[in-house]
Design a protein around this nucleic acid. Structure first.
Lengths: 142, 142
DNA sequence: CCGGATTTGTACGTATGTATT
DNA sequence: GAATACATACGTACAAATCCG
């Protein structure tokens, strides 16, 4: 099985231009052409390269952020997110865990990147612990 | 503790206009003014009501979608998402569970709304089960 | 430290396409 | 078919953060 990397944008395609740009960037990331931690080309550069508006580029990058693949720092650029080391979190008997997107408040509080869910663990007592989903994994524990 | 509902947008505020619009809409939802399943006013209506561009309204609604609060249907409108009934999913010993945003493929495959993470459960055998995070909760099981 | 260049964020406008009512 | 509503795509302009000489 080999991977086909798309390298150009077709404005007449059924697929929206910004999705095509996102496809290209995902390819460059999956490819290893752009390694974790490295910056993508600037929005202007991408727009010029692929012959699209800056708007389309921003929407494309927005998709990557929502998927948890990239994060953007104003004035600096967009970088491929580093996979973080996950630590185990025990799921005790009689406790429930759900995953959801954080509220705006939680995102600020926990300093979460876009596209990072939270895991809420609730005990039968009603106590709730919130964990950033990208730093933990759950294991059954008795 | 009482809730302060913002009702107007101040273009001179430090807070971006689209975030102010999002705040207002979140308030109307938390408030019960707009109940789950009901449609928000149209983008144009919101833009006129708050004296902002349609762009700002779309960004605001985009925030709500990313938070899992709303979903938009083209040609119809944006509705407040219904909290769905969750079913328990056992987390067996020697299995790990992580939460993350779905890939584009998974989102299409599972027909997920924006702002809905997935829970991936991996056994020691290497088998992986994917669940929409909004329909399940995890419980420890021996 | 300062100032300019670069880069992303916000905001608005216009136009056209597509889906639903 | 018409009206309504969201999606896409381009453009402009200015603000704000960062980088760099």
């Amino acid at each position: 099985m080999h991977i086909v990397i798309i390298v150009s944008v077709d404005p007449r395609s059924d697929r929206a231009v910004y999705r095509q740009v996102a496809d290209i960037l995902r390819g460059l990331i999956a490819d290893g052409t752009i390694v974790p931690g490295a910056l993508l080309p600037s929005e202007k550069q991408l727009a010029d390269t692929y012959g699209v508006g800056r708007d389309a580029v921003r929407q494309a990058i927005g998709l990557l952020r929502a998927e948890g693949l990239a994060r953007t720092i104003r004035g600096e650029g967009t970088q491929v997110r580093q996979p973080v080391e996950r630590r185990p979190v025990p799921l005790l008997p009689r406790t429930h865990a759900i995953a959801r997107m954080p509220t705006e408040h939680e995102r600020a509080e926990l300093d979460l990147d876009e596209g990072v869910p939270v895991i809420a663990i609730r005990t039968s007592k009603g106590h709730e612990d919130i964990h950033p989903a990208d730093t933990v994994y759950l294991v059954a524990k008795d």
